[in-house]
Amino acid sequence: MLLKVDNVTKTFGGVHAVRNVSFSINKGETVGLIGPNGAGKTTLLNVIVGTYKADSGKIELDGNDITTKPPYKICHLGISRTYQLPQAFWDLTAIANVAVAGLCGKHRPDMSYGDAMLEASHCLELVGLFGKRNILARDLTLYELRTLGLARALATTPRLVLIDEAMAGLNPGEALRAVKLIRRLKEEYHLTIFWIEHIMKIIMEAADRVVVLNYGEKIAEGPPKEVINNPTVVEAYLGKKHA
């Protein structure tokens, strides 16, 4: 078991964004996290990577408690993430963006600047951004920013990658390419993936297991085929009438 989330609760001023959620992720799995808008998916992700501190509950990585660790330490332990709204170092070139991640992602004081650049160009090549390595991040397109986010996550040599809506805003062709890319990276680097997604179809194909959140609470968990027929899930997505 790689990641174990145990009874995690996070409130914002009395509103439960995440309430008593527990689940676990095994090594090599792809786990999907779905739920309607405002279900607390991104909050849960932020709690895992340490951006928000959980109010109660426990998060373990490989048996180590990481609940109260700051984001950079959690990154060093091998969890990295991508963002729903692409985030980048906007005034840096693509390669510098990845090189920062390569230099800080693990504690590697002996790594030289040149090595980091070499590794960064390798990561960029993997995601197909090598040709744009000297373009400023602010000048990249949305698809390129999403792949840049993946390259940056990859450069920190993670074991678990949290993907936050990799498809939002992409056209169908780009979305397909992104899914293929993520699958290829998973195979090549033996990654474990925790994937928040809005588009059901993609998650049904990609995920081994799906966790469903609604109003901050876990309402279902299981293989995609089972979950999609679960009446509670259908109700959460479509309303009572369709259940």
Binding site: V49, T51, P70, P71, Y72, C75, H76, S80, R81, Y83, Q87, A88, F89, V100, A101, C104, G105, K106, R152, A155, T156
Partner: peptide
């Protein structure tokens, strides 16, 4: 982002 990619 700097913090998230592991920079203290």
């Amino acid at each position: 982002v700097a913090n998230a990619v592991g920079l203290n």
